[in-house]
Design a protein around this nucleic acid. Structure first.
Lengths: 229, 229
DNA sequence: ATAAATTATGGCAATATTATGGCAATTAAT
DNA sequence: ATTAATTGCCATAATATTGCCATAATTTAT
């Protein structure tokens, strides 16, 4: 889904320039040319990012006000100031208000777009960040123990809980052979040996459905199983 | 605890200037003057932020390399480029590499510090999306913890208080699986597991009344529930 | 090569977990 | 006091998962 950006700028031509460049980059852009209508937009629906001009018509501080209001609505919404003024003082007070970036209007369009996408990237990275040490990676495999998700080459593998922990057991030490007892322990079950065989069967099956060439779970005859890379 | 910043800059006097300004602002600063020692620092322990000069000694691209290496280590670590060069081209390629900011060395020290704290503020804001009096946004969903209002695609969802907090618990970390215990804690109740099931049922029902295709609350068999985007 | 041991596979029954509708108890509002 | 809303919980239905077995296929050892 396209990211929605609200652009607040009172100079019509400039505004349309920015807006169309953003649209060409895949953003959905809504514009406002004064404080009042901008506020209404925000109240109606929070965008994914706001790009604000500071001086609007006669009110030289309108952008700062908008920033404050927006921040009250959401502490995490990304805000970029776009301004003709360029003094350090302005920049600093802009950032102090909780803006994320402060750019002079004479930068190039590609530069502005790069800043925007850098900001989105940051949000993305933080959203996907999980608390330390809960992601196990092994080559094309990703195990996330908070989301209880397994990804094989970007694709989600739909495992049951016991399957999940058994896989986790194999992968947390790539190359090490795990016997059936260890696998049971990690999955918190106590069952017949044959049942472990069944679980491995099902895990392999689910991976093969995504990638027919899959063969990273190796059988060690007489001992157990191992994840090979 | 003080935020740890790694500063990579090969010009000794400049480096000391920056470092002491940062220290005066409460940061713990570790410096490096070449690629090798910087990498060692990062491998030993990831800082809370990295401020990188691009050209180091004879290697004009050292900073870019470091950025790449750092990003491989952590996708969410904040990185600021600090550079004498100032062309748009550099800025853009810097940001493309996953940097969060790109600053010319001739900006003032207060400006640099403001940029740093703006970046920290952003991280902070995203990390505790949970504080009261804020609006949490996840795709089409809006949760307003002041008014205790939930909106799904602009439409108000009429949830009871417990339902509200349970939803909030699920949404404040999109994708994370919450078990019944966690949901109880966040809603401030202590009840039978089956009661949680009932609440989820009711929440789903209310969303479905507005949007029959709604299915963002996913059941993870044997674990709990998750908000999926 | 053959026998013995081990593992793979498909299927099915048993079990565990969750969904649903409803009801009684509680709380809040009029 | 009466009504409405909320909440906890239960019985029952619907699903998902799991354990295990018979049988086939492999592997290992002799």
């Amino acid at each position: 889904m396209a990211k929605q950006v609200v652009l607040v700028e009172d100079e019509p031509i400039l505004c349309e320039n920015y807006a169309s460049a953003m649209r060409a980059n895949g953003y959905e852009v809504i514009t406002a040319d004064n404080k009042q209508s901008a506020l209404e937009l925000f109240q109606r629906r929070l965008p994914d990012m706001a790009v604000l001009d500071i001086g609007l018509q006669d009110d030289m501080e309108a952008g700062f006000d908008l920033c404050r209001e927006l921040r009250a609505l959401s502490s995490s919404l990304p805000i970029i100031f776009l301004t003709a003024r360029d003094s350090d003082f302005d920049t600093i007070s802009g950032l102090r208000l909780g803006a994320d970036d402060y750019l002079s209007k004479d930068i190039s369009m590609p530069h502005l777009l790069a800043r925007m996408s850098a900001l989105f990237r940051r949000i993305q990275a933080l959203d996907n960040k999980t608390d330390a040490g809960d992601i196990v990676k092994a080559g094309d495999l990703l195990i996330d123990t908070i989301r209880f998700q397994v990804k094989w080459r970007q694709q989600l593998v739909d495992l049951s809980l016991t399957e999940f922990w058994m896989l986790h057991c194999l992968v947390k030490r790539v190359g090490h052979v795990k016997n059936r007892e260890q696998l049971m322990q990690d999955a918190n079950i106590f069952v017949d040996d044959s049942t472990i065989t069944s679980h491995i069967k099902r895990i392999r099956k689910k991976f093969k459905q995504l990638d027919n060439a899959f063969d990273h779970i190796e059988t060690i005859y007489g001992v157990g199983y191992r994840w090979k890379s």
